[in-house]
Nucleic acid binder design. Sequence first.
DNA 1: TATTGTTATACTCTATAACTATA
DNA 2: TATAGTTATAGAGTATAACAATA
Lengths: 154, 154
Amino acid sequence: MDDVKSGNEEGGIPTTVVFRLGTLGTVAADRFAAVIEPLGLKPKHVGLMAALAHGASAGSQQDLAARLGVVPSLVVSLADHLEQLGAVQRVRDPADRRRQVLTLTDQGRDLLARCTATARDLDDRFTAALTPAQRSALQEALAILASEAGLPGH
Amino acid sequence: MDDVKSGNEEGGIPTTVVFRLGTLGTVAADRFAAVIEPLGLKPKHVGLMAALAHGASAGSQQDLAARLGVVPSLVVSLADHLEQLGAVQRVRDPADRRRQVLTLTDQGRDLLARCTATARDLDDRFTAALTPAQRSALQEALAILASEAGLPGH
DNA sequence: TATTGTTATACTCTATAACTATA
DNA sequence: TATAGTTATAGAGTATAACAATA
């Protein structure tokens, strides 16, 4: 094994940030999907709820689609499902009756809170091998990268 | 913004490690896929080559499937494609003629090296907003998590 | 009969395109 | 005519199940 040339130089593809982020991202997403599955949700549903909870709240479906980086037709089915669960409400904008304004219901806020608690719980297990310092360093770096990539972050 | 209802300490779901790792992982994987696309490869192909380059080298397709965490039938199509590119070779194990032993050709090693260089280049751009200290802290944390999750890395 | 690789099929996710209703 | 939302369709990716060769 000749992979020690210090720092992030040699070491092969699996040691690159983009590759590791990709593979670990899949693992993390799968585990997260597994723990929220009993709530009847997939990660994208949570992402939509989070966008509603955080943002300038009320957003048209097109706005949401842009924020989430998905196509508008996908927002439809996500919203359909969340509406069925009573987590979001569709209200026609009186000013422009073509627009459907999505808002999070109290039930939705509750559901999101449960997802967050579940995610924090999973976080503890997922990062159990890290020291507190390593964990907060990871948090910090991920926050910067997420913000840089235009992902929702705070 | 008092969105603190029930036990919502700080930040909400987008700040959890698992959620951010999931979303950032998708972005990273997409970008990586984009830069290796001119080479005729997808991330999974690179993963297979990396497993061959690193591992106890020669592996049967079933071994590879287990290592990559995918189903054996997927290894078939990945290997088909890589064989077409001249990157891997299938050799029947004389001891057990059911087994196809995959090995990386010189051409495959070359291709993998080009992928690695490309990934490093992408890494630099992807982590440009991080200080050197933050970058190595990220590397360190990701390495631990990857190893913990049983992913190739070392 | 059990196992390796392969092929055939189905399912999930998400995007593109066609349609409707407002504007 | 253009736009927001919806519906219909299609494609990528990957898993499950049936099958052939070998053990």
